[in-house]
Simulated scan of single mutants.
Amino acid sequence: MEITVRTAVERDLPVLLALYRELNPDDAALPPEVARAGWEHIAAQQGRTVLVAEAGGAVVGTADSIVMPNLTRGGRGILFVENVVVAEAGRRRGVGRRLLDAMVDLAEEAGCYKVQLLAADDAYVHTFYAACGFEPRAQGFRRYLARGA
Rank of each mutant, 00 (worst) to 15 (best):
M1L: 10
T4I: 13
V5I: 15
V5N: 09
V5W: 05
R6Y: 12
E10K: 12
D12K: 05
L13G: 13
P14V: 06
P14A: 12
V15Q: 15
L16Q: 05
A18D: 14
Y20P: 00
E22S: 00
N24C: 01
N24A: 13
D26K: 09
D27L: 13
A28P: 10
P31N: 02
P32W: 06
P32Q: 09
E33I: 00
V34I: 13
A35Q: 08
A35I: 08
R36W: 02
G38R: 14
G38Q: 13
W39F: 11
W39K: 14
Q46M: 06
Q46F: 04
G47S: 03
V50Q: 05
L51T: 00
V52T: 07
G61H: 02
G61A: 04
T62M: 14
A63H: 05
I66Q: 10
N70A: 02
N70H: 11
G74C: 06
G75C: 09
G77C: 03
I78L: 13
L79I: 09
N83Q: 14
E88M: 00
R92C: 08
R92M: 01
R92V: 03
G94F: 02
G94V: 03
G94Y: 02
G94S: 07
G94D: 05
V95G: 01
L100H: 04
A102I: 04
A107Q: 00
E108G: 11
E108Q: 14
E108I: 07
E108N: 08
K114V: 01
V115E: 05
L118A: 15
D121T: 05
D122M: 12
V125W: 02
V125I: 14
H126A: 12
T127D: 15
T127M: 04
F128Q: 06
F128T: 03
Y129P: 03
A130N: 02
A131L: 02
A131N: 13
C132P: 04
G133D: 12
F134A: 00
E135S: 09
Y144E: 13
L145P: 10
L145R: 14
R147E: 15
R147T: 10
G148S: 11
A149N: 02
